[in-house]
Amino acid sequence: MIVLFHSPKGGVGTSAVAANLALVLAERGVFVTAVDLTGQGALALCLGDSSGVIDRSRQAEGDAAMIVAGVRVMAPGADRTAAEIVAAIQSHEDEDGDGVVIVDIGSGDRHALDLLLPLAALRLCVLTPDPAALAALPLVYRDVQATRDDRTFFLLNRVDDRLRLGRDIATMLRGLLGDRLLGTIRRDEAVGEALAMLETLASFAPASAALADFRAIAGRLVPERADAAQPERGIA
């Protein structure tokens, strides 16, 4: 299953959401591959990687692959053609029938989104409850065929009901998006603090509110398996 993470607005925490969902899916025993197409390397950092490529013995089609906290991370180079990127992603998907390939796409990279949308089972758009993200919402449906709407779902990140405007926008979005809103993630300083500590959220703050939200969303994506392994702490 290929899941695209993309936002019409940059800076809403798409990479952090993609990474943390990859981690909680891995702790459920799902074979997860995370593909960073942003060119920023934020995905590996959000997974707790402090030293770059960890395991170069696992190579995939010439792309450097590393295992970080139980998640296989792939970052195709900028010199890869679109066809090579698609082939590499599909090769990961085919290895295991019930695996999940998480693809982090930069907010401005419409080309990669259009390329991968036909292959994806889900497109998860990350929003935050602020006016700029709200104003960018129509871009989600720009040039997208109506037949692909059913793959598009939303995640509302950094929700803080103590702030009046944010609370109003979150309430408005819940009404507007309806069942298209897959989940909300509470604003939680522990997310950034874990990043700064080069640790995963689960190892840095096991009681984190955001971590509970990530786990709830993962439960909606993939039902829990009985043989789920415990997540590896830090970097594998």
Binding site: P131, D149, D168, L177, D179
Partner: peptide, 28 residues
Amino acid sequence: VETPGYWPIFRLIHAHPALARLPGAQRR
């Protein structure tokens, strides 16, 4: 069950044709 406060941007978003296929569009 909350009713969000009124902000003019909400009206623009609800009326935007690109969002007409969303479950809550134009209902409010």
